[in-house]
């Protein structure tokens, strides 16, 4: 919106506030139309808050599951080879790494799936001139 205001102010031939306001209104209407065309369903359902809660829980469990599975594999290998507790320590670390990797991937997927444009305004032309 700030960009639109600047442009109309700079290029404006009409000095008076009335014509500037008119042009601003026209631009605003055009912008709203363009935005509506770009993303058809920006309305967030009220259940999106619940979905956000679900996503947060998902990430937490993802992190813990990595450590748990890593620890379990290490424990099982230790029992098999009789090398307790070295492999368990190693695999706990590897499991933590796997858990973090899972969290990053899940977060990336969530970000890709999230509808853009509601939380942050879409900036089509953001060069500072």
């Amino acid at each position: 919106m700030a960009g639109a205001e600047n442009k109309s102010g700079r290029k404006g031939s009409g000095r008076d506030a009335g014509s500037i306001r008119q042009r601003l209104d026209a631009l605003g209407e055009e912008l709203a139309g363009a935005q509506a065309r770009h993303h058809k369903a920006p309305a967030l359902a009220p259940q999106s808050q619940g979905a956000a809660l679900g996503q947060a829980l998902r990430l937490g469990i993802e992190l813990v599951a990595g450590v748990a599975v890593g620890g379990f594999i290490g424990w099982a290998l230790d029992r098999f080879f009789g090398t307790a507790p070295f492999l368990m320590v190693v695999f706990l670390g590897l499991g933590a790494a796997a858990g973090i990797m899972n969290v990053v991937r899940t977060a990336k997927r969530m970000q890709a799936a999230a509808p853009s444009g509601k939380d942050l305004p879409r900036v089509l032309d953001d060069d500072d001139d």
Partner: peptide
């Protein structure tokens, strides 16, 4: 070698995280 092990562990966490999520909730 390191990354493949991590990838395999990450793959093996799937059944655990899937089941724990539903059960815990």
């Amino acid at each position: 070698p390191l990354l493949v092990v991590i990838e395999v562990i990450s793959y093996l966490t799937r059944p655990l995280s899937l089941s724990v999520r539903l059960f815990a909730n």
